[in-house]
Amino acid sequence: MNTTVTSPILALVVDDEPQIQRLLTITLEAAGYRVTIADGGKQALVIAAQQRHDIILLDLGLPDLSGLETLKRLREWTQTPILILTVHDSETEKVQALDCGADDYVTKPFNTAELLARLRAALRRANRGRDEEPVFRFGDLEADLSNRRVTRAGQPVMLTATEYNLFRLFIQHAGKVLTHRHILREVWGPNYQEKTAYLRVYVLRLREKLEVNPAAPKLFLTEPGVGYRLAES
């Protein structure tokens, strides 16, 4: 990665633990990022306003301003991708963060490779225009959004209108976690935000139609307690 990048990627790390700060600095700098550190939410807001960063890593458990509040305030004016650092069994927090505009989350303790992959994916999504690349490929699966055509190994796959809408939403946000509420709102409408049952039924159907092995899905990934993520091609 660091060989292809001409100017280093600027990352803002917001975490109150010096140990995590040091580690993230080492890890990210080794991967070619330039790192700025903020100890708390307030400082993060100031730094983010002073200098444009390419990506922000935000810990949710901050001492002064809660991570969620910091996130909301950042999202009032910037579209910089934000990656949330969080702990296990805080699904509600993750969902809230995602609904407030976070791009992705990584659960502590995280593997360095996994963290870097998530960062790369978030940056890629941010740089990619929303309507770019109308064709999505995954294995022998191909979805052409401009022609509303889905094929597997060249054979057309028939999807109902709702199935197609759901799949299209996933493709538009490939690699990104989508919360249940978000998906239900986008595909079924605001009155269906709590009707998780629909989503379960349709994801099952899409898996049956589009996965190579529906019992071990590789494309439509479940994020327990949070939502779904479409694997990137």
Binding site: Q19, I20, I26, V87, K108, P109, N111, T112, A113, L116
Partner: peptide, 19 residues
């Protein structure tokens, strides 16, 4: 938090070493 922070640090460091 007190348990997880060092665990996160060690995990991150160990995996960083490997990569």
């Amino acid at each position: 938090h007190e348990f997880r922070t060092p665990i996160a640090a060690i995990t991150s460091a160990a995996s960083g070493l490997q990569t």
